[in-house]
């Protein structure tokens, strides 16, 4: 469904990503792992129109969408759940979720989808009228993912799910994510916690200093020494 071809991206005059080739097939859950500064967030930013693409291109269903702006990409079904959640702090959970559906055509199904989100994340139901800024870290992450799902994405991209969360919360989130995947959604997960990412994903890519150094089935990747080198340098 999604394919990048020799993608290069960065900020103003700093190129962070070089010659990146990744693929995500419909229905897959793919993980991108790598150390800090490896370019994982930059990659998602490039795919959602937030980061300048300096070389190469990327395609959605065979169509070159490199030059499209963020709003077009969202309408095409690419939804980015950014690092650090970025919820609308002063709005309630319900309002955040409704805004997630902003780009959808017509208002059919929005209330149903909202209900489905609350079933998927029961903890959110209790807090549905609370201000998003008052939620705990785990609840905020749930809200962010739910908000992303409200856009009925074709591809859901999540950046650093586990950041700042206790292991228990991360487990709960990953279980919910597994359900989302099982329901047929395609997920691209950027994650620093290698173990949890590769345990749940089917395939993975290892990024090191802006380049893909290894890719393959998640279970195999877990055993590779390249992971250690990518993270620790030795």
């Amino acid at each position: 469904m999604l394919r990048t071809v020799d993608l290069g991206a960065g900020y103003r005059d700093v190129q962070v990503l070089w010659d990146v080739n990744i693929e995500v097939e419909t229905g897959e859950m793919v993980a991108i792992v790598g150390s800090n500064g490896a370019g994982k967030s930059t990659l998602l930013g490039a795919l959602s129109g937030l980061v300048e693409i300096k070389a190469g291109r990327f395609e959605l269903d065979g169509r070159d969408v490199t030059a499209l702006g963020s709003d077009r990409l969202v309408r095409l079904g690419i939804v980015h759940v950014p690092q650090g959640r970025h919820l609308f702090q002063g709005l309630t959970v319900r309002e955040n979720l409704l805004l997630g559906a902003y780009a959808r055509q017509g208002s059919d199904g929005i209330q149903e989808d909202l209900e489905r989100m609350l079933e998927l994340f029961p903890a959110l139901r209790r807090r549905v009228s609370s201000l998003a800024g008052k939620l705990s870290g785990g609840e905020q992450q749930m809200c962010a993912i739910a908000r992303g799902l409200m856009g009925r994405p074709r591809l859901l991209m999540i950046d650093e799910l586990s950041l700042g969360l206790a292991p228990v919360a991360v487990d709960a989130l990953m279980d919910a994510l597994a359900q989302v995947h099982a329901a047929g959604n395609t997920i691209l997960l950027v994650e620093q916690d290698v173990q949890i990412a590769l345990e749940h994903a089917q395939r993975g890519y290892i990024l090191d200093t802006g380049r893909v150094v290894l890719s393959g089935p998640a279970s195999e990747l877990l055993e590779r020494p390249e992971i250690r080198t990518a993270y620790l340098g030795l």
């Binding site: 292991p167 916690d193 173990q195 949890i196 620790l232 340098g233 030795l234």
Partner: peptide
């Protein structure tokens, strides 16, 4: 550098507790 990259605490901090445990 050698000591540090083999240090369990460091591995845990960078790769996650689960990986380190494994």
């Amino acid at each position: 550098p050698q000591d540090v990259s083999a240090n369990p605490g460091v591995i845990k901090a960078y790769l996650g507790a689960r990986w380190a445990a494994r």
